[in-house]
Design a protein around this nucleic acid. Structure first.
Lengths: 235, 235
DNA sequence: CACATTAGTTAACATGTGTGCACTGTAAAG
DNA sequence: CTTTACAGTGCACACATGTTAACTAATGTG
């Protein structure tokens, strides 16, 4: 009695087995990436999932993996790249459609949360590998968030009243804001699937924290101002 | 030619093989825990290290593991427990020896960083498993940090001028502060071993961010105050 | 049409894994 | 001193894993 437990794989779902060669190749490549992403939705971390598992989950024999990636590390880096690209794109969109200053913070948090929920799998991956992963992955992710922080800083620089802040101070502030975003992201990610009320609570919490940071910035004496005051005091 | 690559294990180092029975048992138990901790210093995450690896690294045969823990999960939970206990103890000590209000923030950050560096391995473990780990581990860690936040909140409540803040607002603020601490911890942990200048930079960054939060809190209109103003406006 | 390329398959390997079982020597208990 | 408890050992098993090499069949190219 041969027991065949053929899992319904991603490649089976889209039944069209035909198509031009490179198209098909791209399709299974995608299937491998998605399979890895899906496996990480559970308890597993990236370096605890096996090449064979990924291949199995993509509906492909283990050795076929090598036609697409040298090893799991290469797949992992591709995943980071994709995730960060997606994130960057979101930022660009957000910038192109500016919000009314009145509800700026609340709205920004809201759209961000929506984005995270829509791309759960990628964010789950990023969150896990931000520390769990190999040095290469961590570095890539860290570099991505650093860039994120810098972009936010230049955005902040355009605000009225931000003229006196030095570059370092702006970076300091925007890294604080990004911290807040990372924190909600993480909390968001291991909420049970349906809990809508917890989400709005998180949203509220994050918005409040950002408002607090904003208030603090208004009161902050930028280094340039302190220097000026010192100069006056000394005559 | 039998190739024997007997690794210098932790149990070998302390050469005294004798001692009363339960003492010896505790010793190898410790060796197992430390072995796991040590293995996580590298690239590995907790659920990617094997029971056999741990046993090997502790200088003990794999099956001996079962005399101490049912499985790896149980060992993991023990590790979380220990790490959180250590952290809590630090807090208690900090509270018992209060700092001068003038340099409160700077000093607190400094001692905290020192503590993290002194207990690198535990914090590395916590950082990695805060998201990478099994649901059980994550929950334990999350619960621990929640408690940490609450304790900080009650500390903040004792500050002069904190009287108008509601419990929720205090929690919001202290969770923001803990966010900052977590962020530096993570950055601290994957700095190369010697880089002292980067450490002071991090320290400075964190202190500035906390000062900003402090300033923001001073400006913050607690809900109670807003309500009072509303009442006055309405006559 | 004939040929070359190549995405995916099948078979096989050496190695690492978790765990059950019977054992051994020594510390503790009688 | 004899007996018992039990921390640690040795061996065995049934797997799962990464990677190799030779194959198959379909797509692309001349």
């Amino acid at each position: 009695m041969t027991r065949i437990t053929r899992r319904r794989s991603r490649r089976d779902e889209e039944e069209s087995e035909t198509g031009r060669r490179d198209v098909r190749k791209q399709r299974t490549r995608r299937a491998l990436l998605d399979a890895a992403l899906e496996l990480m939705q559970g308890e597993q971390s990236f370096n605890s999932i096996s090449l064979r598992e990924v291949a199995r989950n993509a509906g492909v024999v283990p050795t076929a993996f090598y036609r697409h990636f040298r090893d799991m590390d290469e797949l992992g880096l591709t995943l980071v790249e994709e995730a960060l690209r997606a994130l960057r794109q979101m930022m660009r969109e957000a910038r192109s459609a500016p919000l009314p200053a009145s509800s700026l913070i609340g709205r920004s948090v809201q759209t961000y949360i929506g984005y995270v929920q829509a791309n759960q799998d990628y964010f789950q991956f990023l969150a896990k590998e931000r520390f769990g992963g190999s040095r290469a992955l961590r570095l890539a992710i860290r570099q991505g968030t650093a860039l994120f922080i810098s972009e936010l800083a230049t955005d902040l620089a355009r605000f009225p009243g931000a003229n006196n802040f030095s570059t370092e101070e702006l970076q300091m502030i925007s890294s604080l804001i990004v911290n807040i975003m990372i924190a909600i992201t993480e909390q968001l990610l291991d909420l049970p699937a349906d809990s809508e009320s917890e989400v709005v609570w998180l949203q509220d919490q994050a918005a409040q924290q950002m408002r607090l940071v904003f208030l603090g910035s208004m009161q902050w004496k930028p280094k340039s101002v302190r220097d000026k005051q010192k100069a006056i005091a000394q005559g």
